[in-house]
Amino acid sequence: MSAPAVLEETAAESAGSLTVVKARHPGRWIAGVVVAVLLAMAVNALVTNPAWDWPVVGAYLFHPSVLHAVLFTVELTALGIVLGFLLGTVLALMRLSRVPLLASAAWGYVWLFRSVPLILQLLFWYNLAALYKQISFGVPFGPAFFSVDSMDLIGPVTAAALGLALHQAAYAAEIVRGGFLSVDPGQLEAAAALGIPRARQIFRIQLPQAMRSIVPAAGNEIIGLVKGTSVVYIMALPELFYQVQVIYNRNGRVIAMLLVAAIWYLVLTTVLSGVQHYVERRFGRGLARALSPTPAQRVRRILSVRRAARRQRPAWGGGERR
């Protein structure tokens, strides 16, 4: 074919006036059509089959008892994550400290709380009141200064939040520690050479850089925990999963109620994924030469490309856009 030669000649004289014809990808088209057909079939099955009970889904999706359960799930997740990551960060710093006793205590904690299944830990905390009727503060094996009834201190809600947080802390500790280890040791050396105080070295220099690898892993954990809160149904707490069970035991619409729960879990995780994206951008500052576009920017860009394509502009003229 002589096309390359022709292109070469003309490109030299008037590249700007040429029209670019995009390469064709028939394979992509076929795959796209197949997926579209499958999707249409799935939607059809979902919408037309009365077994899905959409009217019931609609009726219960914003039912006050369901909304309360969603809120409780959100609260449990927030408590579990915030307390879990606070304790996890402390554990990670202990693990990285130069004091052997602190480091081994943190190691022991992670070992214990990662090894025992969450459901077992939850039941354990729930029944702690039975194990220790009184919780007293004082000298070990010696006199107690004051004591409280454990039933007062650890109600089912506290037990659930505590159980989730303590379990989460073990994983958070490893994520945070991994983040710190991912920071170039030269950073700490430079901070030390500049005489920056130790705490400031950790929180101003190391942690923000560690966040780049902590955030994606933490996002995973949070989304895991949103769904993980469903295990506290064994403690008969009114979180989302328990609540829909209560409702379908009453009205018998199992599928519809499970759909209600599924839709809410989808909504929560979608919101969290969006938040994660923006947090990642925040901590990516300065670490990449250019920031990745936000979802909103991406949509705008796609639209503007479409508009430009309609106007048939040659691609070479589009140099102002990256």
């Binding site: 430079a190 050479a193 500049l194 105080p197 923000p208």
Partner: peptide, 25 residues
Amino acid sequence: ERDILRRRTQIGFVFQNFHLFPHLT
């Protein structure tokens, strides 16, 4: 360590690989 850090501010150090803090301007 705290006192060593304070005294160290009397000495500037320039590294072969710069070691600037990438997340700060």
